[in-house]
Each structure stands twice: as C-alpha cells, then as structure tokens.
Simulated assay, not measured.
Amino acid sequence: MKIFSAPDYTAMSRKAANLISAQVILKPDSVLGLATGSTPLGVYSQLIDWYEKGDVDFTKVRSVNLDEYCGLAPEHEQSYHYYMKENFFKHINIQMVNTHVPDGLAKDVTAEGHRYDKLIDSLGGIDLQLLGIGNTGHIGFNEPSESFIKETHRVTLKQKTIDANARFFASKEEVPRYAVTMGIGAIMGAKKVLLVANGAGKAEILYESLFGPITPEVPASILQVHPDVTVVGDEAAMAVIREKCPSAID
C-alpha cells in the first residue's frame, strides 16, 4: 500500500487525477471504476482540464460506477447517473454507451445485482477503482455489517450516512434510505485501487481502516489485503496517520 499526503484538497485531487490519467494513457481502453460524492469532484475537474488541453483521451475508456440510490430516476438531480453526467461525462469524449451505473429503479434488485456483476466480468474486470471513504468506513455503499458482501446488492443506509448526504438534498427526509452498491468482490477484484480522502472528519476512520483490524464493521479495512492500493489524502485527513504511523506516508 502506498500512502501519499498532499498539502490541500487541490493537490490531493491533482495527484489522484494524475494516477488515473496515467492509467488511461498506458491503457486507452481501461475499465475505470468511478465514485461519487464531494471528494472526487476535484479529481474529475482536473481530468476535464487535462482532456481539454489534449493530454488525455477517453474515447475507448469503459466505466462502471460504484452505486446508485434506490428509487431515483437517472434524471433526478441527486441520482448518481446525473452526478456523473454533469460533473464528468458530458465534459469529456467518453462514449456514453461505455458508461455504466447501477439501476436504482430496478424492481428486482437481486437480479440487477447479478446483471451488474456479469457486466463487470464481461468487461474483463476493473483496471482502476476510484474510492472515497464514508464516515462509517463504507466504500461504495458497503456499510458496516456482520460480513463482507461480495455481490452487488441492496443496502440499508446507516443514519450517519444519511446525515452526511443530507446536505445534497432539500431535507434529511428526502435522502433515500436504500442504495444498490457494487459489492466487495468487484472492488477487491480491481487490479488497482485508488482511495481519496479529505478533511479532518475522515482522519480517524482513515487510520482505523488502514491500520486497524480487518473487519466488516469497518468495510474499508478489507483494502489492507489488496495487492495494489494507493491512498491520497490532504493533510487534515492524514493527521491521525501522521501522528501514529508517520513512516507509512510516502
């Protein structure tokens, strides 16, 4: 595992975007696993900038997103279909037919999970998976649980997750209570994992995830056994790691 500390959010975003652009340059038809939320926005902004300058080409890239809220149509402003289109896809030359997000309107979520896992397999798996980390230690929407769930599945969101995401909605009551998320199997099957974290609020859970016990109660802790993980965080997010394990930071 490689752990990098950046001085601020902009530098963190640039470092992470550099790793993604390098992946695409070296393998133009890469399968990118993509994340949503506030943390990756700077990464996508930097990639858009480099695309506009002609430094990176997304024509052959395929993408699979981690998750989607149950009950939200793709056109809903808080759906992750909409997030990806508005914050990344429409600004680059990726072919929309090559972009994939779980179906939050699927009546049979189990069948949707099987479909999505087969889709990822048909693409040859994920070359690089971008992850954020939630306050509960969740990756994707894999919340603390009694076991690591391998398959794409429906999850009941924890109250801490609902509270954290309420800022994107008009009220906390409007935040969906369920989501369909890529399982731990597909995430851990990615050839490379890139985890980004920013802000003091992520410092303790980031340390716990990377250096604490491997347990489904802290889903991100499973990344400790992945063979190729890079973590990029700003100084605030790295504060606890810097205090307790300073030698771990590159």
Rank of each mutant, 00 (worst) to 15 (best):
G125Q: 05
F89E: 10
I162R: 02
H153E: 13
D228L: 01
H100S: 06
I3Q: 14
V56E: 06
P219Q: 10
A106Q: 09
V225I: 11
K2I: 09
Q23R: 01
S21G: 14
I20N: 00
A164G: 10
P246T: 10
T59Y: 11
K107E: 14
Q78G: 07
S21N: 04
R62M: 15
V175F: 05
E86V: 08
R167Y: 13
G37V: 01
A190I: 02
N18H: 15
V193W: 00
G212F: 13
P213G: 13
L119K: 12
D57K: 07
D67L: 13
L194V: 03
A166S: 15
E174T: 14
L210M: 15
L123F: 05
L34E: 10
G104C: 12
I92S: 01
N65E: 12
M188N: 12
V24R: 00
D121M: 11
V24E: 00
K172F: 04
A111W: 07
S38C: 07
I25Q: 12
Y82L: 09
G125W: 01
E243I: 14
S209H: 12
F58D: 02
Y80V: 06
V193G: 00
A239V: 08
P176L: 03
E112Q: 14
Y9K: 03
L194W: 00
H81L: 14
I139T: 08
N135I: 14
M238P: 02
P28F: 11
V196P: 00
V196Y: 00
P216M: 06
F141C: 08
I20D: 00
I184G: 05
T156N: 14
L128S: 00
V43L: 00
K150H: 12
E75C: 08
E143P: 10
G134T: 00
V225M: 11
H91G: 08
V240N: 04
P102H: 02
A236Q: 10
G37S: 08
I94K: 04
L123Q: 10
K191D: 03
K191H: 10
K53Y: 07
F168E: 15
G134K: 01
I184C: 04
K172V: 10
D108M: 05
A73N: 12
P7L: 10
S45E: 13
E235F: 09
Y80F: 10
K192S: 02
G54C: 01
E174R: 05
G104H: 03
I205T: 13
R177W: 06
L195N: 05
Q129M: 11
I184N: 13
T110P: 13
V229W: 12
A11P: 02
Y178M: 09
L47R: 03
A179P: 15
F148L: 07
L123H: 01
D228A: 13
I249V: 08
I249W: 05
F89I: 09
T136R: 04
A11R: 12
H76T: 13
I133Q: 02
